[in-house]
């Protein structure tokens, strides 16, 4: 019952950043039970590829993953790519960078911020920016996975306390990295996420983010 929802993997990579084409990711995701994916490459790997469906795979929407080194660079990147893409994902960095990302009205997701606290959590809630949990780090072993788990556990605690929207994503760099929704939920359980929270973080919250982009584009056409 609970797993009858529409699932979306809000952050995957594709060609030319990685070895799998957009269509291949879409087919592989559909096979695992997703109805949509968002391909968000780094800015240097942007192509003229279009969003849409290949007919039989998961619906593909385009986003961009920004990982600027300083806040001023972030503003430039947002000005440059904000109009072009449905979803803007910012990779967490220094505290100043995270703060700048959470103050921007165009950013949709702040992903894996290591420097995250109660002040930033309130900012995220007030500006309706989702906190992203990229499970890529949980597929490593040893110290990197321990650090990833600790970070996710802390971020989840803050998100719960301040009511910040949460999304779960694979951050897949190939179709071998994609994980089915139930597997994503099982991985999220490792840092304390409940089944209900995982389902929401894979369905309604990412769906809201995609619809927000579409609504805003629609508004521009009307005005």
């Amino acid at each position: 019952m609970m797993f009858a929802s529409r699932f979306i993997d809000i952050h995957v990579h594709a060609m030319p950043q990685c070895a799998d084409s957009q269509n291949r990711m879409s087919l592989a995701a559909a096979r695992m039970g997703y109805t949509g994916i968002c391909v968000a490459n780094l800015p240097e790997f942007i192509t003229g590829a279009a969003s849409g469906t290949s007919g039989i795979g998961a619906e593909v929407r385009l986003g961009v993953e920004l990982c600027p080194d300083k806040p001023s660079r972030l503003e430039k990147d947002i000005a440059k790519y904000g109009q072009q893409f449905d979803v803007i994902i910012v990779r967490g960095g220094s505290e100043e960078l995270n703060e700048a990302a959470l103050k921007s009205s165009r950013v949709d997701i702040l992903e894996n911020p290591l420097e995250f606290n109660h002040v930033l959590a309130k900012l995220a809630r007030d500006n309706h920016i989702a906190l992203g949990f990229n499970i890529g780090g949980l597929l490593l072993r040893g110290s990197q996975r321990i650090q990833a788990l600790s970070m996710h556990r802390k971020n989840l605690m803050l998100a719960r306390k301040y009511g910040v929207p949460v999304v779960l994503a694979s951050g897949a760099r190939s179709h071998y990295d994609l994980r089915a929704p139930r597997e994503m939920a099982a991985l999220a359980m490792l840092f304390g996420m409940t089944l209900e929270e995982s389902v929401r973080a894979l369905s309604t919250t990412p769906l809201d983010i995609l619809n927000k982009g579409r609504l805003m584009q629609g508004l521009e056409v009307v005005v």
Binding site: S21, N23, S174, H175
Partner: peptide
């Protein structure tokens, strides 16, 4: 970058 041996494509 993907740590794979093959390029993943589709008939499309």
């Amino acid at each position: 970058r993907s740590s794979t041996r093959y390029i993943g494509a589709t008939v499309f």
